[in-house]
Design a protein around this nucleic acid. Structure first.
Lengths: 233, 233
DNA sequence: TTTTGTGAACTAGTTCACAGCT
DNA sequence: AGCTGTGAACTAGTTCACAAAA
């Protein structure tokens, strides 16, 4: 049961990741079986959505019973490719790049930061707190080949992003997590995910709206908000 | 011409941010007018999409002519609320939090990092490289009030995220950028944007697929990929 | 003529609801 | 009886295509 991955939506793929994490929670709690309904209730998801998502990849459940927690988790881990270690390269050894290089979420669960690149001679050869050496971008193609790097994380300045991105995919990197504000125009077989902090902030600013004057709020403090939640089942 | 912001989709809001940035580029190039078609071609967008997005907020163009670049930009800046300074608080003074606190994208264009919080006594009172002091989370409510903080950035460990999030919205923070893997269940008037690095990495891993063995690629190197691009107009 | 603004058509994504299996 | 897997219905988002305006 294999499906063309490119036909699977970004949102479905992201949910699979969530499912894995949530199943992990159940697993540590010793829960053996779970129905889509119970799973949805527990983690505030939609049961129909769960079933649809899973059905894309096979029939993992048993009618009348539900899903076997650890088995389903293993299946999803395999579908996400997390049962093999993915080597990650971070390109741009600035504050953000070095922070990410040492970030636990980037160094666990199937991922390993294998290299950290920069083009600044003053940085090359130095090490991050966790001991990862900064390598010259000139060595990127060879390092990608040698270390089997599959994922690139772009934390260079915006002006350098297009060039750094091209270098990555020309070296054989298959996926990029782009923290810069540049838009990349990657070839279609390279998967790019943009994590544009500025866009995220500006989007939040939009939803806050324009009402309040720059200095301070007019409401009496403290105020507690109503906890309204349209819960799904 | 005002629209209920909550009825505007996340993707539309994100595109407005992109439009502002792109219009800025045209402005510095001295371009006075632009049609939706030319704008789309230049920045690889869709002209119909641009017109639809803008039409949500008013009639900014002139038929037969197009849009006046700097005027449209000012309109969008105002719609996004970027003409006023938004105070941002970063909660969690770890590697990521301090990196973000000093990140230029977080300190420009209508945003200012007004405070950085942590609950670790060893960190409280220390300063980031750019000189921002780490404040105790106990002072968060008072600081939010005093500094008019509207946006919170969560960079605490996952276990602390739910509590930190609640503290934020109970203190009056209207929007959260959540870098943790925790899901927040915020009240409906608090806008939360999740930037879950683990989910992003795992999604990329999904699209890379499972084929290749962990060590190295089998293709001859270097290989340049086909630059196939379904360009829109 | 050119280009906007916008209903209509289309496409993608989600939820419903139930037949079919255990 | 209980729950999955799934077509059908629905909802959201995008693109088309053209009437109206300059």
């Amino acid at each position: 049961m294999t499906v063309d991955r490119r036909s699977v939506s970004e949102s479905t793929a992201a949910r699979l990741s969530l499912y894995v994490r949530s199943l992990g929670v159940l697993e540590t709690e010793g829960v053996r079986h779970v129905s889509s309904h119970a799973f949805a209730r527990r983690f505030d998801l939609s049961s129909a959505q769960i079933r649809k998502d899973l059905a894309t990849f096979g029939e993992f459940g048993v009618r009348g019973v539900g899903y076997e927690v650890s088995l389903l988790r293993r299946h999803l881990v395999s579908i996400l490719g997390l049962d093999q270690t993915r080597s990650v390269a971070i390109v741009g050894a600035g504050r953000l790049g070095t922070a990410l290089a040492d970030y636990p979420g980037f160094r666990s669960g199937g991922f390993a930061v294998a290299a950290l690149f920069d083009n600044d001679p003053a940085k090359i050869g130095t090490r991050t707190r966790s001991g990862l050496a900064v390598t010259s971008v000139a060595d990127l193609p060879a390092s990608v080949e040698r270390l089997g790097i599959e994922i690139g994380v772009l934390t260079v300045p915006a002006e350098a992003a297009v060039e750094a991105g091209r270098l990555c995919w020309e070296s054989g990197i298959a996926a990029l997590l782009n923290f810069t504000s540049a838009r990349l125009n990657a070839p279609s077989d390279v998967h790019v995910k943009n994590v544009d902090l500025k866009v995220n902030l500006e989007t939040l600013s939009f939803y806050i709206g324009g009402g309040s004057p720059p200095t301070r709020k007019e409401e009496p403090w403290p105020r507690t908000r109503n906890r309204s939640l349209p819960r799904r089942t």
